[in-house]
Design a protein around this nucleic acid. Sequence first.
DNA 1: ATAGTTTCCGAGACGGAGTATCATTATGGT
DNA 2: ACCATAATGATACTCCGTCTCGGAAACTAT
Lengths: 155, 155
Amino acid sequence: MVVTTPKHSGHEHPRPRSAAVVDDIIAQLCDLGYRDTEPRRLVISAVAAQSRPFTAEELCSALPCVGRATVYRGLRLLVETDQVCRILLEDHELRYQLSQPGHHHHLLCGVCGASADLEGCGAEDLLREAAAAAGFRMKGHLLEVYGECVECVED
Amino acid sequence: MVVTTPKHSGHEHPRPRSAAVVDDIIAQLCDLGYRDTEPRRLVISAVAAQSRPFTAEELCSALPCVGRATVYRGLRLLVETDQVCRILLEDHELRYQLSQPGHHHHLLCGVCGASADLEGCGAEDLLREAAAAAGFRMKGHLLEVYGECVECVED
DNA sequence: ATAGTTTCCGAGACGGAGTATCATTATGGT
DNA sequence: ACCATAATGATACTCCGTCTCGGAAACTAT
Ligand SMILES: [Mn+2]
Ligand SMILES: [Mn+2]
Ligand SMILES: [Zn+2]
Ligand SMILES: [Zn+2]
């Protein structure tokens, strides 16, 4: 499964910076047995181009040439393979963001919509203990932090 | 489809335990300017009768004589007035449960579906500090704990 | 390259969940 | 009893995500 050049169809565009990210993710997907397809690359590319957490529908709008079902399927695959995080806003709106793999949480700014990763905050152990005190065996958790980011606080 | 008497039918039922709960919640709603209506009482009564977190649709099924919109409105009112908690399961299913007012979280058993309240676990302060370290001003958070309850662990 | 196998795509149908509409009814204050 | 208005409920609607299925594309084997 060598991940070489994506098939160009037509003109020779200068490679966007995100191309490396796309190649990297495609490579991982190929290792898992998924195929290297043009629509898939387009979805990954659009995901990588977002600077803020985005909704699935926003992604669809950004990809008018890709079928809606394909966008949703691609997004789901990226979440399942831990390339993209699902983010839950305070109003229960579901958003997504390209993310480092591994367990972490998000600091979500209600003003500008930005998201910052938060890891190793130690809350997990505390929770596990508190749960254990009630005889409860913690096996997972959902945690989102809402507030204002550095830049928005300064204004 | 006249629903039979709210107060008393011909027979003398011993008042269910939940009647006190219903009266109590209705009283609070009246203080806020909401009216004491039969459908509202039915919704509250059905909510109080649930032993596990329930979905809105389950509540609708349990109340075939109350309009679906009314059930949803009643549920929303109870959430807004902090009588009922919204609970988010791991698969993102939204459930509800009668609850004590005030800030707390939930220990959710994935085996039997039970929910236990968790308060004062100290995770909030820890989170606020961790967020502050990144210049982020925490103003709220969403936290659900998933695992197995005492009874289910023992099996 | 060619042919064959299987995944993938995409237009559209579908389904669940919650909300909006609006004519009608019930409630609570006077 | 009367009235203003809050609440109800049938229904239509929106939103979001999944399913279906015929056709296309991607990999594999020859
Ligand atoms: Mn993330
Ligand atoms: Mn609760
Ligand atoms: Zn911000
Ligand atoms: Zn249990």
